[in-house]
Design a protein around this nucleic acid. Structure first.
Lengths: 180, 180
DNA sequence: TAGATTGTTAATCGATTAACAATC
DNA sequence: TAGATTGTTAATCGATTAACAATC
């Protein structure tokens, strides 16, 4: 498969594909392209997916339960390990394949279950507090769904996914460029 | 509130805040800062949120149902109007506050319910097909959760949210910079 | 007036694209 | 060998940052 083919399917330019693959140490063959099977293996290795990182969800509300129900994460190389909440009404209940645990257990679990990524799906006003707990538990990667910027110590990676903001950007497109 | 204050809470630089606000036509007062109430109104107007755009979810699987259950969209200026599926086992069932409708109804509904944004939460292999239906129904903004690049006609805005990819990027951070 | 903070222009930086030699 | 396609260097572009005049 050529970088051009990959570009088409992924929405980035062919040059970008070649640059990124080269950066990750995945080599193609000039005049031929990339071997897809080998490439897939190589990428799994480069992204550290063989580790099958343990993921915990914090917040068992609408979004948290939603995430627990979503099966796409396991399919893409992750172990969905636990979901936590602070509300005793929720603790013990189900969220997809998981049982909601008390947030107090997280620090212990993080070691036992080898949790390395935390997904924060709490209300905005709890997110900073919760992220501190997550970091304390030794987790060094956070996917933050709350619409706030988290302050974390150096060495902790945070990515933010703000679904409502995505919609608002689309709304802006709708009103700002009616034609085109 | 100063651009500096806004910057702190939002995770962008103060200059960026001033530039963006200025671009959107929101004016502050030199030496003083921005009036938060007025600013909020101004932004709602600039982003076209008073329209309370109608949103439809296509795909009532795990992720689609999850999105239907999430209440953050209504809170941020959107009307969650309908959820569609192609599977007759799902049609008629509940997804949060919504009843799953047949995808065949979408074209009609889009006019009646004034749907202007479509959220695609189908499996990857159905996404392109479904997006064509959405566009045909007159919807000109798409939030795509499927891990494929959609081909749409000019004038249609697409944003992609790929949750599994977000995790994979965090995974890469974990393995590539163990310290730092 | 002095202090604070916006709004904008100019300078810098990084990321994307163009171009092309290397080579299968 | 001719054609195709990678891998990388150089050129371009856009976005971010620095600097500062305007002004409340």
């Amino acid at each position: 498969m050529s970088s051009e083919d990959i570009a088409e399917g992924s929405g980035v330019s062919a040059v970008q594909v070649r640059k990124d693959l080269s950066f990750l140490g995945a080599a193609g063959t000039r005049g031929v392209g990339y071997d897809v099977t080998g490439l897939a293996d190589q990428l799994v290795r480069a992204l550290g997916l063989e580790a099958r990182h343990g993921v915990a969800i914090i917040g068992a509300g609408n979004l948290g339960s939603a995430l627990a129900n979503y099966q796409g994460f396991e399919a893409r190389g992750f172990r969905m390990v636990a979901i936590y909440d602070i509300d005793s009404d929720r603790i013990g209940g189900r969220a997809g394949p998981l049982t909601v645990r008390s947030i107090d257990q997280m620090a212990t679990d993080a070691r036992v279950d080898d949790i390395s990524i935390g997904m924060i799906a709490t209300p905005a006003d709890a997110a900073q507090f919760v992220s501190a707990l997550v970091v304390e538990a030794g987790v060094r990667a956070i996917l933050n769904f709350a619409p706030v910027e988290l302050r974390v110590p150096q060495g902790v990676s945070v990515r933010r996914v703000d679904l409502a903001t995505e919609l608002q950007i689309l709304s802006y497109h709708l009103v700002s460029k009616p034609e085109e």
